[in-house]
């Protein structure tokens, strides 16, 4: 059986924009992944879910400006729990100049607005399965 990627998807903190995160979740599902959407959660709860669900990937969405304060916290807490292999992706409204900061703090990749879904899917597959996605 093909290895299925397990993804925990969360909205960060109070953020109310559920549209994007659900949309990405649906596309990841369509791409064959097992997506566990956990709704609005804070970093501690996100990491808790990642552990129990044995996630390969944590996807965190935020459009409300809390990405710098809360985003890297997810990475730190995962590390503290011995889950450094879990890749954390962020998406939403994140200014370009904040992306290097987030990556510097261990966020694997940041997807801004207008990112094609295929880019997100390929990004996750490459990170987890270690293979280059098929072209085209």
């Amino acid at each position: 059986m093909e290895r299925r990627i397990r993804v925990v998807m969360a909205k960060l903190g109070l953020d109310i924009h559920w549209r994007g995160v659900l949309l990405v979740s649906q596309f990841l599902k369509d791409a064959g992944m097992e997506v566990i959407y956990i709704g609005n959660k804070f970093p501690e709860q996100i990491v808790e879910a990642a552990i129990e669900e044995d996630a390969d990937v944590v996807g965190v969405s935020t459009l409300s400006g809390n990405h710098l304060t809360l985003g890297p916290k997810v990475v730190e807490l995962l590390k503290a729990q011995g889950m450094e292999t879990v890749k954390v992706f962020m998406g939403g409204v994140i200014p370009p100049n904040h992306i290097p900061i987030l990556k510097g703090k261990g966020i694997h990749e940041v997807f801004g607005p207008d990112t094609p879904m295929q880019t997100i899917i390929d990004g996750i597959k490459t990170a987890i399965l270690g293979t280059d996605p098929p072209t085209g």
Binding site: R4, S25, Q26, L28, K29, D30, A31, G32, M33, E34, V35, I36, Y37, I38, G39, E44, Q45, E48, A49, E52, E53
Partner: peptide, 29 residues
């Protein structure tokens, strides 16, 4: 194909997180 599991959304158990283990499972898998 994949699955989209949403049962965790309603679960809030911060006070007792050590005592609880919650796992989502898709039948298709």
């Amino acid at each position: 194909g994949g699955s989209l599991l949403g049962d965790r959304i309603r679960i809030n158990r911060d006070a007792f997180k050590e005592d609880v283990f919650f796992r989502s499972m898709s039948a298709g898998r």
